[in-house]
Design a protein around this nucleic acid. Structure first.
Lengths: 74, 74
DNA sequence: GTGTGACTAAGAGTCCGTT
DNA sequence: AAACGGACTCTTAGTCACA
Protein backbone atom coordinates (compact mmCIF):
# COMPACT_ATOMS: atom_id res chain seq x y z
CA UNK A 1 0.00 0.00 0.00
CA UNK A 2 1.02 3.63 -0.47
CA UNK A 3 1.06 4.79 3.16
CA UNK A 4 3.09 2.06 4.75
CA UNK A 5 3.63 3.78 8.08
CA UNK A 6 -0.09 4.15 8.64
CA UNK A 7 -0.77 0.43 8.25
CA UNK A 8 2.29 -0.37 10.37
CA UNK A 9 1.07 1.80 13.22
CA UNK A 10 -2.36 0.24 13.14
CA UNK A 11 -0.79 -3.21 13.02
CA UNK A 12 1.37 -2.42 16.03
CA UNK A 13 -1.64 -1.19 18.00
CA UNK A 14 -3.51 -4.38 17.15
CA UNK A 15 -0.55 -6.54 18.14
CA UNK A 16 -0.11 -4.67 21.42
CA UNK A 17 -3.73 -5.24 22.31
CA UNK A 18 -3.62 -8.94 21.36
CA UNK A 19 -0.54 -9.65 23.47
CA UNK A 20 -2.17 -7.67 26.27
CA UNK A 21 -4.94 -10.26 26.11
CA UNK A 22 -2.35 -13.04 26.26
CA UNK A 23 -3.37 -14.59 22.95
CA UNK A 24 -1.25 -16.05 20.17
CA UNK A 25 -1.84 -14.91 16.57
CA UNK A 26 -3.21 -18.34 15.84
CA UNK A 27 -5.70 -18.39 18.69
CA UNK A 28 -6.89 -14.86 18.08
CA UNK A 29 -7.23 -15.38 14.34
CA UNK A 30 -9.27 -18.50 15.02
CA UNK A 31 -11.50 -16.59 17.44
CA UNK A 32 -12.47 -14.00 14.84
CA UNK A 33 -12.64 -16.58 12.03
CA UNK A 34 -9.68 -15.13 10.18
CA UNK A 35 -6.75 -16.97 8.71
CA UNK A 36 -3.57 -16.87 10.73
CA UNK A 37 -1.37 -15.94 7.77
CA UNK A 38 -3.63 -13.09 6.77
CA UNK A 39 -3.88 -11.82 10.32
CA UNK A 40 -0.10 -11.95 10.57
CA UNK A 41 0.24 -9.73 7.50
CA UNK A 42 -2.10 -7.18 9.08
CA UNK A 43 -0.03 -6.95 12.26
CA UNK A 44 3.08 -6.44 10.14
CA UNK A 45 1.41 -3.53 8.36
CA UNK A 46 1.41 -5.22 4.97
CA UNK A 47 -2.29 -4.80 4.38
CA UNK A 48 -4.43 -1.76 3.94
CA UNK A 49 -7.50 -3.26 5.57
CA UNK A 50 -11.10 -2.24 4.98
CA UNK A 51 -13.40 -0.77 7.62
CA UNK A 52 -15.32 -4.05 7.84
CA UNK A 53 -12.08 -5.85 8.71
CA UNK A 54 -11.16 -3.16 11.24
CA UNK A 55 -14.54 -3.62 12.90
CA UNK A 56 -14.02 -7.37 13.08
CA UNK A 57 -10.58 -6.97 14.64
CA UNK A 58 -11.74 -4.35 17.13
CA UNK A 59 -14.67 -6.52 18.20
CA UNK A 60 -12.36 -9.45 18.83
CA UNK A 61 -9.97 -7.27 20.79
CA UNK A 62 -12.80 -5.86 22.89
CA UNK A 63 -12.20 -2.26 21.88
CA UNK A 64 -13.94 0.23 19.61
CA UNK A 65 -12.53 0.90 16.14
CA UNK A 66 -12.10 4.57 17.01
CA UNK A 67 -10.10 3.84 20.16
CA UNK A 68 -7.92 1.45 18.19
CA UNK A 69 -7.12 4.22 15.71
CA UNK A 70 -6.65 6.70 18.52
CA UNK A 71 -4.08 4.54 20.31
CA UNK A 72 -2.25 4.17 16.99
CA UNK A 73 -2.03 7.95 16.81
CA UNK A 74 -4.79 8.66 14.31
CA UNK B 1 -20.48 -5.15 1.44
CA UNK B 2 -21.66 -7.45 4.22
CA UNK B 3 -22.20 -4.91 7.04
CA UNK B 4 -24.22 -2.31 5.23
CA UNK B 5 -25.27 -0.33 8.27
CA UNK B 6 -21.66 0.23 9.29
CA UNK B 7 -20.73 1.75 5.94
CA UNK B 8 -23.94 3.78 5.91
CA UNK B 9 -23.21 5.30 9.29
CA UNK B 10 -19.68 6.22 8.29
CA UNK B 11 -20.99 7.66 5.04
CA UNK B 12 -23.55 9.79 6.88
CA UNK B 13 -20.87 11.11 9.24
CA UNK B 14 -18.69 12.03 6.27
CA UNK B 15 -21.58 13.73 4.49
CA UNK B 16 -22.53 15.67 7.61
CA UNK B 17 -19.01 16.98 7.96
CA UNK B 18 -18.73 17.90 4.27
CA UNK B 19 -21.97 19.87 4.25
CA UNK B 20 -20.84 21.51 7.47
CA UNK B 21 -17.87 22.78 5.47
CA UNK B 22 -20.23 24.05 2.77
CA UNK B 23 -18.69 21.96 -0.01
CA UNK B 24 -20.33 20.09 -2.87
CA UNK B 25 -19.44 16.42 -3.44
CA UNK B 26 -17.63 17.41 -6.60
CA UNK B 27 -15.56 20.15 -5.03
CA UNK B 28 -14.62 18.02 -2.05
CA UNK B 29 -13.79 14.99 -4.19
CA UNK B 30 -11.58 17.16 -6.37
CA UNK B 31 -9.84 18.57 -3.31
CA UNK B 32 -8.80 15.12 -2.11
CA UNK B 33 -8.07 13.85 -5.63
CA UNK B 34 -10.89 11.35 -5.60
CA UNK B 35 -13.47 10.73 -8.28
CA UNK B 36 -16.86 12.25 -7.52
CA UNK B 37 -18.79 9.10 -8.52
CA UNK B 38 -16.77 7.02 -6.14
CA UNK B 39 -17.01 9.59 -3.38
CA UNK B 40 -20.76 9.68 -3.84
CA UNK B 41 -20.96 5.90 -3.37
CA UNK B 42 -19.00 6.21 -0.13
CA UNK B 43 -21.43 8.76 1.32
CA UNK B 44 -24.30 6.47 0.40
CA UNK B 45 -22.66 3.60 2.29
CA UNK B 46 -22.14 1.47 -0.80
CA UNK B 47 -18.42 1.02 -0.33
CA UNK B 48 -16.34 -0.72 2.31
CA UNK B 49 -13.42 1.70 2.17
CA UNK B 50 -9.84 0.95 3.19
CA UNK B 51 -8.02 2.67 6.05
CA UNK B 52 -5.88 4.62 3.59
CA UNK B 53 -9.06 6.01 2.04
CA UNK B 54 -10.49 6.83 5.46
CA UNK B 55 -7.31 8.75 6.26
CA UNK B 56 -7.58 10.66 3.00
CA UNK B 57 -11.20 11.58 3.67
CA UNK B 58 -10.53 12.56 7.28
CA UNK B 59 -7.61 14.75 6.24
CA UNK B 60 -9.78 16.54 3.69
CA UNK B 61 -12.52 17.04 6.25
CA UNK B 62 -10.07 18.39 8.79
CA UNK B 63 -10.80 15.74 11.40
CA UNK B 64 -8.99 12.66 12.69
CA UNK B 65 -10.00 9.21 11.45
CA UNK B 66 -10.79 8.14 15.02
CA UNK B 67 -13.10 11.10 15.65
CA UNK B 68 -14.87 10.40 12.38
CA UNK B 69 -15.55 6.83 13.51
CA UNK B 70 -16.52 8.04 16.96
CA UNK B 71 -19.12 10.48 15.64
CA UNK B 72 -20.53 7.66 13.53
CA UNK B 73 -20.98 5.63 16.70
CA UNK B 74 -18.00 3.30 16.41
C1' DG C 1 4.27 -19.65 17.19
C1' DT C 2 5.30 -16.60 13.43
C1' DG C 3 6.88 -14.91 8.71
C1' DT C 4 6.73 -15.38 3.75
C1' DG C 5 5.76 -16.35 -1.26
C1' DA C 6 2.39 -17.77 -4.46
C1' DC C 7 -2.07 -18.04 -5.77
C1' DT C 8 -7.39 -16.92 -6.84
C1' DA C 9 -11.89 -14.48 -6.11
C1' DA C 10 -14.06 -10.56 -4.81
C1' DG C 11 -14.30 -5.94 -4.19
C1' DA C 12 -11.94 -1.17 -4.00
C1' DG C 13 -11.09 2.53 -6.86
C1' DT C 14 -10.87 5.03 -11.68
C1' DC C 15 -12.98 6.69 -15.76
C1' DC C 16 -16.39 7.44 -19.10
C1' DG C 17 -21.18 9.01 -19.77
C1' DT C 18 -26.37 9.77 -18.72
C1' DT C 19 -30.36 11.01 -15.81
C1' DA D 1 -25.51 19.38 -7.58
C1' DA D 2 -26.09 14.46 -6.89
C1' DA D 3 -27.31 9.47 -8.32
C1' DC D 4 -26.38 5.84 -11.32
C1' DG D 5 -24.43 2.75 -15.08
C1' DG D 6 -20.87 -0.06 -17.39
C1' DA D 7 -16.17 -1.30 -18.17
C1' DC D 8 -11.91 -1.30 -16.58
C1' DT D 9 -7.48 -2.01 -13.36
C1' DC D 10 -5.32 -2.99 -9.01
C1' DT D 11 -5.46 -4.52 -4.28
C1' DT D 12 -7.71 -6.76 -0.37
C1' DA D 13 -9.54 -11.02 1.45
C1' DG D 14 -8.71 -15.47 2.00
C1' DT D 15 -6.13 -20.05 1.54
C1' DC D 16 -2.03 -23.12 1.30
C1' DA D 17 2.64 -24.97 1.84
C1' DC D 18 7.04 -24.13 3.58
C1' DA D 19 10.60 -21.96 6.13
Amino acid sequence: MQDETFASHIGSAIRARRTELGLSQERFADAILMHRAYYSSIERGEKNITLATLLRLADGLGVTPSSLLATAGY
